[in-house]
C-alpha cells in the first residue's frame, strides 16, 4: 500500500511538472502569436493584450501559485534571450506585479472574485509594472499623464484575456487529466 501511494505521488509530481512545461510552451506560443499582429496604435509603449497571461492565470487559478510564478519568470527569461535584456526586464516586472496583485485579490476576496476582475487587476498591474520599469530605465516619467491610458487599456486587455481563458479552460482541463 505504502509503495503504491509513493508511486502515485511521483506520478502526480511528474504530471504537474509536465503541465507547467506545457503551459510555459503555450505562453510562449501566445506571445509569438501576439507579436505577429501589428502593435496596437496606442501612444504608450508596451500596451498589449498580454495573451500569454491566459496560461499564467490558468496556473494560478487551477494549479499552484509557484507554478504560475515559474511560468512568468521563465517567460521573462525567454523574452530576454530573444528580444533583449530590457524587454526581458519589462516582461518580468510586469509579470511579477501582475501575479502578486492577482494573488492579493484572490486572498482578499476569499477566491470569490470573478475571472474578469482578476484578469483586469492583473492586466492593470502588468501595465503599471512595465511603466515603472520603463521609468527607472529611461529617466522619470510623469505617471498621472499616463494612468488613464494604463487603466483603460488594462480593463480592455483584462476582459479579452478572461474571455479567452473561459473558452480555453475545457481544453486545459483535458491536459490535466
Amino acid at each position: 500500500m505504502k509503495g503504491k501511494s509513493d508511486n502515485s505521488k511521483g506520478v502526480h509530481k511528474t504530471r504537474s511538472l509536465v503541465l507547467t512545461g506545457l503551459l510555459f510552451a503555450l505562453a510562449l506560443v501566445l506571445t509569438v502569436v501576439e507579436n505577429a499582429f501589428p502593435a496596437l496604435p496606442l501612444p504608450v509603449p508596451g500596451v498589449k493584450f498580454g495573451l500569454s497571461n491566459i496560461a499564467v492565470m490558468y496556473a494560478l487559478f487551477f494549479l499552484k501559485k509557484s507554478q504560475a510564478f515559474s511560468i512568468a519568470v521563465l517567460k521573462g527569461l525567454f523574452v530576454a534571450a530573444t528580444r533583449g535584456v530590457i524587454a526581458g526586464i519589462l516582461s518580468i516586472s510586469g509579470g511579477i506585479l501582475s501575479l502578486t496583485v492577482m494573488i492579493i485579490i484572490m486572498i482578499a476576496f476569499n477566491k470569490k472574485a470573478s475571472y474578469v476582475i482578476e484578469s483586469i487587476s492583473g492586466a492593470v498591474a502588468h501595465n503599471l509594472g512595465q511603466f515603472i520599469a520603463i521609468s527607472f530605465i529611461y529617466t522619470g516619467m510623469y505617471l498621472v499623464a499616463y494612468l488613464p491610458v494604463l487603466l483603460i487599456s488594462g480593463v480592455v486587455a483584462g476582459i479579452v484575456t478572461a474571455t479567452l481563458l473561459r473558452f480555453i479552460i475545457p481544453a486545459f482541463d483535458r491536459l490535466g487529466q
Binding site: 511603466f131 521609468s135 527607472f136 522619470g140 505617471l143
Partner: peptide, 10 residues
C-alpha cells in the same frame, strides 16, 4: 504637482 514622478526624474 502630485508627487508621482517615478524613477530618477522624480
Amino acid at each position: 504637482e502630485p508627487d508621482i514622478i517615478i524613477g530618477s526624474g522624480g
